[in-house]
Structure formats: C-alpha cells, structure tokens
Amino acid sequence: MKNRNQALAALAVASMLLSGCAAATGSVSAPSAVSATAPSAASPEAGHTDSQGGGHHGGGTSSPGATKDGPSDAALMVCGDQPMDRLTSILNLKEDPHTINDWANNTFTCTYHLNEGALTISVHEAVDKASALTYFNAMQALAKDASPIEGLTNLGFPAYETDDGSAVFQKDAFVLHVDATDLPATIGPENITRNALAYQLSSTILACWIEHP
C-alpha cells in the first residue's frame, strides 16, 4: 500500500486498544434531520452534504432497509474524543476544530472545519453485515481511482482508498468513510498526506469499534 508501513499500522491500532475508547461526549450535538438524499447501493455517496466527495460520484434514491431513529453509540464515536484528539495531535492544533453533525437515512456524518478545508467522517449503518458489504462494494465500484487496502493495513476488514484522500472500511453492519478530499495534498507541521491522515483517523475509529463492538 502506498506510503504506509504495515507493522507501524498494526502497532498504532494496538496502542489505541491499550489507551481505551469512549463513546462521543457532550461535544456532539443532537443529530438533526437534513434534506440531503440518502446514499444507496446505486449511489452510495449522495447523502454527504458537507463533503466534497472527490473520490465518489452519484446521487439519487434512498438506501434499502429499515430507517433507524438515530445513530448508534458506535457511529457517534466518529465525532467523539478519540478522533478529535488524534486529529489535533497529528496536525498540532492549538484547539479543537469546530464540528457539525447530521443524521439522515441511516448515515451519521461529522464534519470537522479546519483552516485548510473540511474533513468529513461518516458512518452508514446497514441492517446487517451482508447489506453493509453490498453498500461498500457499490461505493468501491463507483469510486474514482480506488485502490484496495490490503495486508495488515486493512485491519482484517474490506477497505479501499482513493488517490484524492478518502479511506473506506466495512466492519459488521457499518461502512466508515473518512473523506479528506477537501484538504490540500499535504497538511500539518509534518506535511502528512491527506491519504495518510484519512487512514490514521480510520484506524483510530476502528480500534474503538474493536474494543467496543
């Protein structure tokens, strides 16, 4: 996989598991209904109103399956302390960036407003693992310049990344999408690539999900 050391990736996840994870705290506002069209197997990314979505295209109908009343605790974690702490550490931010979140059509979206642009993390909650994999496969098929994430770096889950800064993982009934496509090619004092940033935030969230299934 491009620009990534497999052993370091596994070590990073192990470190997160040891440090502990918690569900999103009071910093997450109550998700509100939005008018965006939901993602679907035919057009998985239509529901991301705040993301530029450079690696994906589509728009249309609602996703199949029952509509949930609100996001799960696991989905709320993408707007919680762990990804926020990881983001501020990587970019050496002096304060937490402003975030907004939405819940629509079984997709929870958290947008981090950085000076350089928007970073969007979303979780689609399918009815079961098979439905989530179908949704993931449709996203990958439609994604521009998608490359599978393989070996230790996929953490044992179906995963892919796009050249312009997205990372997508499927775990159980969840499809996690970290979208850094609105950011510059490199960011922060260490000039981390947006692909590496998307991957590191993905691994942080997945580590929390592994600890708190």
Score class of each variant (00 low, 15 high):
A7Y: 14
A7G: 08
L11I: 12
L11C: 10
A14C: 08
A14W: 06
L18S: 09
A23Y: 13
A24K: 04
S27Y: 07
P31S: 08
V34W: 12
T37S: 15
A38R: 12
A38V: 08
S40F: 00
A41P: 06
A42C: 07
H48T: 08
T49H: 12
D50R: 13
H56P: 06
G59K: 13
T61I: 11
S62H: 10
S63L: 13
A66C: 02
T67E: 15
G70Y: 06
G70I: 03
S72W: 01
M77K: 06
M77H: 03
C79Q: 04
D81P: 05
Q82E: 15
P83F: 02
R86Q: 15
T88P: 09
S89K: 15
I90M: 02
L91E: 04
D96W: 07
D96V: 09
N101R: 10
W103H: 08
A104H: 12
N105F: 03
A118C: 04
A118G: 03
L119I: 04
I121S: 00
D128R: 02
A132P: 04
A132M: 04
F136N: 08
N137H: 10
Q140A: 14
Q140S: 12
A143Y: 08
K144A: 11
P148V: 05
E150N: 13
L152V: 10
L152H: 04
N154F: 01
E161T: 13
G165F: 06
S166L: 09
F169L: 06
K171S: 12
K171R: 15
A173C: 09
L176H: 05
I187C: 03
G188R: 01
T193S: 15
S202P: 05
A207I: 00
C208W: 03
C208H: 06
E211I: 00
H212P: 00
